[in-house]
Write a protein that binds this DNA or RNA. Structure first.
Length: 1079
RNA sequence: GCAGGGAUGGCGAAAUGGUAAACGCAGCUGGUUUAGAACCAGUACGCUGAGAGUUCGAAUCUCUCUCCCUGUACCA
């Protein structure tokens, strides 16, 4: 009996070992990163998880295992390693669960975190749990709120190309106004002087500053999801529906907080060059930012339709208009003969345009004016000959105000009224009046070199000019087109790219150079949200324009030399030679581009411009379970709460839905007002708008809490600062960041933005937060299927379904063994609907079908790590996940293979122990032993450097197989081996280490040093190939010179056999590698 | 359409200019102890998606094509 007990303890009892060491690590805080260490730092970070209710499946730990191996390896290499973990614990699922059950999201979140922690702990990660953070914890989101305030109090100075404190902007405004300020700001800022700045009211000043702040409140069109009751960011929408739940999304105007990320577009692009991130990830950020270089061109609008167009203000007078108005009235009542004749023809839209007489414009009273066309008609008597000079000044002043002046003499009007009217009409037709302040249609183009190829213009149906320029004849067609496109969802519009639709507005624009009229169309291939929402259409140089022109029979002028455009547009920039283009003739693309921009700038109708696709990020969400803003409102203007009063804690609410009046869920809170005297949150009833004000009802989006969390880990308990200068200066940045590629344009872009902002404001020393990033691939599930015969209802084994009409049905993967046989009895028990099903077997077995799919509950292919750990142990799970294949590749899970790595661990254990106890001796290791060990050290170090963890697991297997065959028992080999294995399989390594007689943890023991001398071979087995095909092998001394090798090979009888008497043309000898005989 | 990645035994894969398939799973044969199963020994299969080029030699480099995956999209 005693013997069998002894035997039991000497078995590899992984469950016991793993529990023991997990407890030891926790108790001794083995992996606590030291805050003041003389060691070199190394920061290994995982993307922290959102703690969902479903818990972890085997796909989740993949990245964590890889980073853990790296972190443990770095500890062995003598680094002070920071390897923290936390939870991104604000989010929609907890809130929706709360809506359904009434359970507070904080409670479900805490419960989920508990599950996650248990699951993570049992895998044996070396996280420094003393640094755990949770984004939903007020002590953490205090700093998210703090950063928001910093952003609010900053503006982007384009001259210094960085964010600066808002005070510096205010100082500029008070000394010079805003004329000299070169900032990233809203489009609609108007110029003001220092005096005007001082004259503005506080509210006006705040309104102006809001246009410059890095986070600002603006009415913007947002993606509103009625089903979720919230706004979604662009990256939260997939194929026109919400990423979560697939609900419809519509465009809606709302006042929202926005982040001026567009200020950083260029730097976010430039920064990609200095970070070691995967190329596909960099590419998707590059595409997302979408830089395109070209020009903005303005096309004046021609020929406003008669009587239509913009409605200019009636009161056009200057400062003395009250005096002039009296005089004008008088003059109206006493017209001259000529004036009267003309008025009879002009009044009541007689010639199609509305005219006014004796109208005050600026400081003048003009005889007649058409306000829509800004055309003034003056009828001069003899007196004007004497005051020619004065009239010139008058005309110039009116021109300055944007009016054309047409002068006629009394005699002309009286003598030939028809000729006068004809001239007036001609002028009216010709005059272009830019609507509502704009000077024409502004377009963005990357091909200003093709400007002479423009044969029409296209506006997005939503473009604001559409309603203003459409002619009465086209009005009906345009309106019905707009209605039709509005009905089509974004999804339909995307799916249906091939169908060409559009309609002519009836209006024309004027070509900047040829002055030819260009018809203006609207078409839904032009997107309102990109560029200016209008394009200059060059059918010969753009396929979409080409298709549109072909479809509607619009001319397609060719401006490319020697190119046939009868079938399709010519888009090859490099081969472009411009022709039929006036001053651009004969120029290649690049030169033509520059020249076109130069000429456009010269005539003031365009300029070179860089356009970005990246839009400012909407930062408000109409949700409960998110960070509250540290903002209250005074007279409609947002005010920041002073940082010393943070955190502003999320208030309690009755229910988590929007209020009946459509306000966000925080509108349900009864204690949600800010008292500026007590500096605390007080009941809403105390709101008096003098010292107590309403608080912001929106909360921050999901990415708020994750955009700086990596820096908070450096000093997570600091209550006075987001992190101490000491901590940030020591830890600097993340050395290795591992996580999924799905965050490419969300978290990873926003984090880089905030990091650059923090850098600009001097809070952090690095403007990129992660030097190296790795995307682990997804682990997919291997679903299993049974096949139901549609005719008989029988379940047919996979090999017999050919020719039958069968429906595949998912079965739980846990009921299938490694040979794809179904456990029929258990299947019947767990799926009552198949209790009496007839099974058609092959060779007495039911074989299931297999297919690789994403892991999901509904597919019955989810594999839970808990079960694996229980059955094979954490070390087996860790090794197996690494062994599956390259880290970055997506790969299917198949539990069957785990017996391989599990067997390896048992074999490893038996190197150290047999039934009687330890086998380890002080025997001097053989050369063979040392060769195996050092070969392994070399390969494993190379593999870790390349993140090739799958091959190092193979290397361990080879090593253990070899040492077992060598019957190695030497401590000098087995000790270093335990260290080598420890990053991968830490539990067994600790146990072996302890059994070898050590009392300290293996975690920081120095990694064995590779010594090349043990790998030196005295001989080499040369592969001898003939014409590149290996035929036989030959053992030769390793240091044999080239000539001797050749001689030895040629003398070999097998060589003669291969050559069959032929003389080789050539013999290639690569010493140490190969011999190749050609001939 | 564009961008990126990929295609090697029945399966996961290794080899990045020099012996293709290491390592593991599954298969097959034999053995040992079995309640299940575990362990040990042995073993077959396979020529790198197709074609061309460079080379003494190509899975690896170049070109053309096919297919698959990921991302993205009337981006002017």
């Amino acid at each position: 009996m005693a013997y069998s007990k002894e035997r039991y303890t000497m078995q590899y009892n992984f469950n016991e070992i793993e529990a023991k060491w997990q407890k030891y690590w926790a108790k001794n805080e083995t992996f606590k990163a030291s805050q003041n260490s003389k060691k070199e730092k190394f920061y290994v970070l995982d993307m922290f998880p959102y703690p969902s209710g479903a818990g972890l499946h085997v796909g989740h730990p993949l990245g964590y295992i890889a980073s853990d191996i790296y972190a443990r390896y770095k500890r062995h290499k003598g680094f002070n390693v920071l390897h923290p973990q936390g939870y991104d614990s604000f989010g929609l699922p907890a809130e929706q669960y709360a809506i359904q059950t009434g359970q507070h999201p904080a409670i479900t979140t805490a419960k989920n975190i508990e599950t996650y922690r248990r699951q993570l702990d049992q895998i044996g990660f070396s996280f420094d749990w003393s640094r755990e953070i949770r984004t939903s914890d007020p002590s953490y989101y205090k700093w998210t709120q703090w950063i928001f305030i910093q952003l609010f109090n900053s503006w982007y100075n384009k001259d210094t190309d960085k964010a600066e404190a808002i005070d510096t902007l205010i100082a500029k405004f008070s000394s010079d106004g805003n004329a000299s300020v070169n900032a990233v700001c809203d489009d609609d800022v108007v110029a003001f002087s220092a005096d005007e700045w001082h004259a503005f009211s506080s509210k006006e000043q705040q309104t102006i500053l809001l246009k410059y702040r890095l986070t600002y409140l603006a009415e913007s069109e947002v993606n509103w999801c009625p089903a979720l009751g919230t706004v979604l960011a662009n990256d939260e929408i997939v194929n026109g529906v919400s990423e979560r739940g697939g609900h419809a999304v519509i465009r809606k105007k709302m006042t929202q907080w926005s982040m001026r990320i567009s200020a950083y577009a260029q730097r976010l692009l430039d920064g990609l060059e200095k970070i070691d991130w995967p190329q596909p990830l960099k590419d998707s950020q590059t595409n997302w930012i979408g830089r395109s270089q070209g020009a903005e061109v303005i096309f004046p609008i021609l020929a406003f339709p008669k009587g239509e167009g913009t409605r200019p203000g009636y009161l056009t007078g200057g400062n003395n208009s009250h005096v002039l108005l009296e005089r004008a009235k008088e003059m109206r009542n006493n017209p001259t003969q000529a004036e009267d004749i003309l008025w009879q023809s002009l009044k009541s839209k007689n010639i199609g345009y509305k005219f006014r007489r004796q109208h005050v414009i600026g400081n003048y009273i003009v005889d007649f004016v058409c306000l829509t066309k800004k055309l003034i008609i003056e009828v001069d008597g003899g007196i004007h000959d004497a005051q020619k000079e004065e009239d010139t000044i008058r005309t110039a002043a009116l021109n300055e105000l944007g009016y054309e002046v047409l002068r006629f003499r009394n005699e002309q009007v009286i003598g030939d009224i028809d000729a006068v009217l004809k001239e007036i009409l001609q002028s009216l037709e010709k005059i272009v009046v830019p609507p509502s302040g704009a000077r024409g249609i502004s377009v963005f183009t990357t091909r200003p070199d093709t400007i002479f190829g423009v044969s029409f213009m296209t506006l997005a149906p939503e473009h604001e000019l559409v309603t203003q320029i459409t002619t009465p004849e086209q009005k009906k067609a345009v309106e019905s087109y707009i209605e039709a496109t509005a009905k089509r969802s974004e999804r339909d519009r995307m799916a249906d790219v091939k169908t060409i639709t559009g309609v002519f507005t009836g209006a024309y624009a004027e070509h900047p150079f040829t002055k030819e009229p260009i018809p203006i169309w609207i078409g839904d291939y032009v997107l309102a949200g990109y560029g200016t929402g209008a394009v200059m259409s060059v059918p010969c140089g753009d396929q979409r324009d080409y298709d549109f022109a072909k479809h509607f029979g619009i001319p397609i002028p060719n401006i490319f030399e020697g190119v046939d455009i009868s079938e399709e547009a010519f888009t090859d920039k490099e081969k472009t030679i411009i022709t039929n283009s006036d001053f651009l003739n004969g120029l290649p693309y690049k030169k033509a581009l520059k020249t076109a921009i130069y000429e456009l700038e010269k005539i003031g109708q365009g300029k070179g411009k860089i356009n970005y696709r990246l839009r400012d990020a909407v930062f408000s969400r109409q949700r409960y379970w998110g960070e509250p803003f540290p903002v209250y409102y005074v007279d409609g203007m947002p005010q920041m709460i002073a940082p010393e009063h943070l955190p502003i804690k999320l208030p309690e609410v009755e229910k988590y839905l929007p209020t009946e009046t459509g306000e966000p869920p925080l509108g349900n809170a009864t204690t949600w007002a800010w008292c500026t005297e007590k500096n605390e949150v007080v009941p809403n009833s105390e709101i008096n708008h003098t010292c107590t004000f309403p608080l912001e009802l929106n909360t921050m989006p999901g990415w708020a809490g994750s955009s700086q969390y990596f820096n908070r880990y450096m000093d997570p308990q600091n209550e006075a600062e987001i992190f101490s200068q000491e901590a940030i200066n020591y830890w600097q940045d993340v050395d290795l960041y591992i996580g999924g590629s799905e965050h490419a344009t969300g978290h990873l872009l926003y984090s880089r933005f905030w990091q650059k902002f923090m850098f600009d404001r001097g809070f952090v020393p690095k403007d990129e937060f992660a030097k190296k990033l790795i995307n682990q691939g997804m682990i997919t599930g291997t679903s299993a299927f049974v096949y139901r015969n549609e005719d008989t209802g029988e379940l047919t084994s996979k090999g017999l379904i050919k020719g039958l009409k069968v429906t595949p049905l998912h079965v739980d993967v846990s009921l299938v063994n490694s040979s794809d046989e179904l456990d029929i009895e258990t299947f019947k028990k767990t799926r009552p609907e198949f209790k009496d099903a007839e099974f058609i077997l092959e060779d007495g077995k039911y074989i299931v079908g297999r297919e690789v799919e994403k892991m999901s509950k509904s597919k019955y292919n989810v594999v839970n790590p808990d079960d694996i750990v229980k059955e094979y142990g954490a070390d087996s799970l860790r090794l197996y996940e690494m062994f599956l294949g390259p880290l970055e590749q997506s790969k299917p899970w198949n539990t069957a293979g785990i017996t391989g790595v599990h067997g390896f661990l048992k074999k490893l254990w038996r190197l150290y122990f047999n039934d009687n106890g330890s086998k380890v001796t002080d025997t001097v290791p053989s050369a063979e032993n040392l060769k195996t060990l050092h070969k392994t050290i070399k390969k494993v170090e190379e593999d870790i450097a390349n993140f090739s963890f799958n091959t190092s697991v193979s290397t361990f297997m080879i090593c253990v197989n070899e040492l077992t065959a060598q019957k190695c028992t030497s401590k000098d080999i087995l000790e270093p081996l335990a260290i080598l294995v420890s990053p991968y399989a830490p539990h067994i390594a600790e146990e072996l280490w302890e059994k070898l007689g050590h009392s300290e943890s293996i975690a920081t023991v120095a990694f064995p040093t590779f010594e090349p001398k043990y790998l030196v071979e005295s001989s080499k087995e040369y592969p001898i190939s003939f014409n590149g095909k290996m035929r036989f092998k030959m053992e030769l001394p390793a240091d044999l010179p080239k000539e001797a090798i050749e001689a030895a090979v040629m003398a070999h009888e097998k060589t003669k056999e291969q050559l069959q008497g032929r003389t080789p043309k050539k013999v290639i000898v690569v010493p140490g590698k190969i011999v190749n005989i050609v001939g």
